[in-house]
Every structure is written in C-alpha cells, then in structure tokens.
C-alpha cells in the first residue's frame, strides 16, 4: 500500500513537473527565477500589452509585437502573456526574447554601453542650442540697446544717421517707399524718377 502511494506520488510529481516545463525549456534557466508576483485577469492583460509594445516583431518591418497582425507576433504575444502570468517582470521578459533574437528585438534601446548616446543626445542638443541662442542674444551686433536713440541721432529729411548700417537702412526705406533713386531726395530740377 505504501509502495503504491509512493509510486502514485512520484508519478504525479513528475507529471506536474512535466506540465510546468511545457515544451521543455524553463525560462528561469535563462533569466532567473520570476521576480514579480503572478498575474491574472485585467492586470495580466494590461501588463502583457505593455510589454508586447516594447518588443519588435522579427518578421515585420518595425512594428511592435503588440501591433503586428502576423502569426509569429501572436505566438510571441501568447508567450509574453505566459511569462507575465508566471510572475516574470518586464526586464526578465525582454531579456528572454533578447537571448533568442538579439538586442534587435527591443524597441526601446536598453541603457547600456553606447546606447547612452542616443538617450542623452537630445538633452545635449537642447543645452547646446540654448547656449548658442544665449551667446547670439548677448552679442552686441544682434541685441538692441537698452534705450532707443533720441534727438540728434534720428534722421531728418536731409540728414542720415551716423551709424553706417542704419544709414543704409534709411536709404533703402526711402528708395522703396518714395521711389527716390538711391534713397536720396531728388533735386527740384531733376527729371522725374523712373516709373518702376
């Protein structure tokens, strides 16, 4: 009787172990024991969907496993769901697929080695750009003076401002607005300006 019970117990244990193994490979051998709690129901669905969005479908071009309609993607989604249900966390599940497919399968570049460049580059760009603007705004050429010019510095009809670039500007305005060739007021006896 005890022998029979022992045999039954061992058989049951073996069967349970076999069932737990599924088709043979235990993911814990690859990524370690599950680090998170077992999930089920809507929490499981949400977590599986989130992780499926981070895996690249290897047979499609650029789509995530979550978005891809292909059969391979739906198999991968099922595998993601099984792993999440067993309590593996996001990094473990991603690492499991990375073992088989390479870093290629992760849509979000993991933070290691040279990948830091792509994550930090935009921040560097922002700082660099802001620095350039700050420098440009400080350069006296570009930024307006604190107080606008008054009195003698303003041009009259027969005078031009001292500043040469300002003078050129005034001449051009007169040329365009009044049709004065070269921006100089025509002499009373001069022929009329060309119709343009």
């Amino acid at each position: 009787m005890k022998t029979v019970l022992a045999v039954v117990a061992v058989t049951v244990a073996l069967a349970a172990a076999a069932a737990a193994q599924g088709t043979g490979e235990d993911p814990a051998q690859v990524v370690g024991a599950p680090r998170g709690p077992r999930l089920e129901g809507p929490a499981l669905d949400a977590r599986a969907k989130e992780i499926a969005g981070l895996l690249r479908c290897p047979v499609c071009q650029g789509l995530s496993v979550g978005d891809s309609p292909s059969t391979m993607a739906s198999n991968m989604r099922a595998q993601v769901k099984d792993l999440a249900a067993a309590g593996y966390d996001q990094e473990q599940i991603l690492a499991y697929f990375e073992r088989s497919y390479g870093e290629f399968v992760r849509l979000k570049p993991p933070l290691r080695g040279v990948n830091w460049l792509v994550w930090l580059a935009p921040a560097f760009g922002l700082l660099a750009g802001a620095a350039v603007i700050a420098w440009a705004l400080r350069a006296p050429r570009l930024v307006a003076d604190a107080a606008p010019p008054t009195g003698a510095a303003l041009p009259g009809p027969d005078t031009l401002p001292d500043d040469p670039s300002l003078a050129r500007y005034v001449l051009r305005v007169r040329e365009r607005a009044y049709g004065w060739p070269g921006g100089m007021a025509p002499r009373p006896d001069a022929p009329p300006a060309d119709t343009v």
Binding site: G22, T23, E25, N75, M76, Q79, S100
Partner: peptide, 8 residues
C-alpha cells in the same frame, strides 16, 4: 504554440 521557435 511556436514556443521552441521563439526560444531559438
């Protein structure tokens, strides 16, 4: 279920 295919 393609689990082995995925593993490989």
């Amino acid at each position: 279920d393609a689990k082995t295919a995925i593993a490989y």
